[in-house]
Design a protein around this nucleic acid. Structure first.
Lengths: 88, 88
DNA sequence: TAAGATTTGTTCGTATGTATA
DNA sequence: ATATACATACGAACAAATCTT
């Protein structure tokens, strides 16, 4: 999945993949996505790299992380509301 | 006990110490070892570090954890059987 | 039945150090 | 120098299983 002779960096490729999974509904609204540890293993990358990708998706309103519980997909209307209000 | 100017990492040093305690019988077969919380305090390390070490010892058949009860030392013959059967 | 304590299990959050390009 | 990416290690919150009172 990740291309190690890249034009794009590893984190950018992973970002594209996860955003697609959200937008296509593979990761369903209101549900948790796989844990950081799970994503580390699936993609074969380091924790910091996963966090960088999830951080960007959170900034853009796709996800919300809850400590000790998981990282959840926001429904589209919530995402848009958050972006307007700027409370990323 | 743990050396903080290490060649070995903290978790590797802790792994060596615990494995020795099992092999010398300081932690007796069929008995529970100290709890994760206790080991955190004894070694002055974080929960994640303890769990990493115990996870390795479980993979190698030295220990078996039972949720809500404790982590138990497997007798040698059980350990060897488990390793042969590959049921971690 | 219920409540609390203990223990293992899981998750996110954060920081530091190293290597590479 | 900066950005990328890795590994290690810390802390904290939450959950589930078990046992006792």
């Amino acid at each position: 999945m990740i291309d190690w002779a890249p034009d794009e960096t590893v984190w950018e490729q992973m970002y594209d993949i996860l955003r697609k999974r959200i937008e296509t509904g593979e990761y369903k609204a209101r549900n948790p996505i796989p844990s950081i540890t799970h994503l580390e293993q699936e993609f074969g990358v380091a924790r910091g790299t996963v966090r960088k990708v999830l951080g960007k998706l959170k900034d853009e309103g796709y996800l919300r992380a809850i400590s000790g519980k998981g990282t959840f997909v926001l429904p589209r209307h919530e995402r848009l509301r958050r972006l307007e209000e700027g409370d990323a």
